[in-house]
């Protein structure tokens, strides 16, 4: 499927739109996504938020908006990291695929997700990306999950359940998240 990236050239960061395109194409193939994807990068902010809209512009395209920090090499500021690009795109594309493939119909819109729900879904995505072979630091995601669910054994159990899972529905993801917030 086609991938387009804007801008093609960058002024504030030293990113390469060709690299973004190639990484996105590899992920789309690996994840079995059959829609065109447009990626728009906001290079004016170092923040790292990534958002997606399904059914943008021509009807079935996936529009992804990215803040430059999401693709940045934290060791070399303003330079692009291919690993960060892959993980950031992989996480959002998995969430898009979840929404498209059913079982996530009742999931709130991204902007309406509670922080704990977002952490749970991100954990579910990060675990699957790790099994795809991407370099994902599990402890980083465990720390994020704990910040949203508590620093407890119950929360850790919920994290590991999500990390190892595949084929969950939104109801199951949310139920694990809810159970993980119960103080042990």
């Amino acid at each position: 499927m086609s991938v387009t990236v804007t801008p093609e050239a960058f002024r504030f960061v030293q990113f390469d739109s060709g690299t973004v395109t190639r990484v996105a194409q590899e992920l789309i193939a690996a994840l079995g996504i059959d829609r065109p994807v447009h990626i728009e990068i906001d290079e004016t902010t170092p923040l790292g938020r990534v958002r997606a809209t399904i059914g943008a512009a021509d009807g079935d395209a996936i529009a992804i908006s990215v803040e430059s920090g999401a693709f940045e090499d934290s060791r070399r500021p303003r330079q692009q990291s291919e690993a960060a690009t892959a993980v950031s795109l992989g996480r959002i594309l998995l969430r898009v695929r979840d929404r498209l493939h059913g079982g996530f119909g009742e999931a709130p819109a991204d902007d309406d997700l509670e922080l704990r729900q977002m952490a749970a879904w991100e954990t579910y995505c990060a675990g699957r990306l790790a099994r795809l072979g991407l370099h994902v630091n599990q402890q980083r995601w465990l720390y994020n999950f704990r910040n949203r669910h508590g620093f407890t054994d119950t929360a850790d159990a919920g994290f590991h359940q999500l990390w190892a899972a595949d084929g969950l529905t939104w109801g199951e993801v949310d139920a694990i998240s809810t159970a993980a917030t119960v103080r042990s």
Partner: peptide, 10 residues
């Protein structure tokens, strides 16, 4: 504990 590596940031 927080999931960072030594030297991960400039």
């Amino acid at each position: 504990w927080m999931g960072s590596e030594i030297g991960q940031f400039a």
